[in-house]
């Protein structure tokens, strides 16, 4: 089970895609989109870029199943932390709405 050598062409293609996505995210950020659309677009683009780096630059697409599971576990645990904490913050004021001093 010798390692997989990714052709240079793939690296250049991924690099191109990353550049285009960077330009895209800066471009979209200029417009005032309704609601949470701005942050949604920005994060979606960031996730796509990160996925490209992980899959191709970090060879996870060609790696062993074990490596893939580890990567998935890392993301899963981060999501656990974010989601369960958010479950507090999102529902905290449902029972007794309090006006918060802010904004």
């Amino acid at each position: 089970m010798s390692e997989h050598i990714v052709p240079k062409k793939t690296y250049y293609a991924v690099f191109g895609a990353l550049m285009v996505l960077t330009a895209l995210t800066v471009f979209v950020a200029r417009f005032d989109l309704p609601g949470i659309l701005n942050i949604t677009v920005a994060l979606t683009v960031a996730v796509i870029k990160a996925t490209l780096v992980v899959l191709y630059f970090m060879h996870v697409r060609y790696s062993s199943r074990l490596t893939q599971v580890i990567v998935a576990a890392g993301i899963f645990w981060l999501v656990i932390m974010l989601v369960l904490t958010a479950s507090d913050y999102v529902t905290r004021n449902l029972l007794a709405p309090v006006a918060r001093i802010s904004m």
């Binding site: 800066v26 200029r30 005032d32 701005n38 994060l43 960031a46 630059f57």
Partner: peptide, 20 residues
């Protein structure tokens, strides 16, 4: 590459958040 990925998230979250 990992350090690169962190920046990929930091850039929109910190710099682009108020661009519009």
């Amino acid at each position: 590459h990992f350090v690169d990925i962190v920046w990929i998230f930091l850039f929109p979250l910190l710099y682009l958040v108020g661009f519009h």
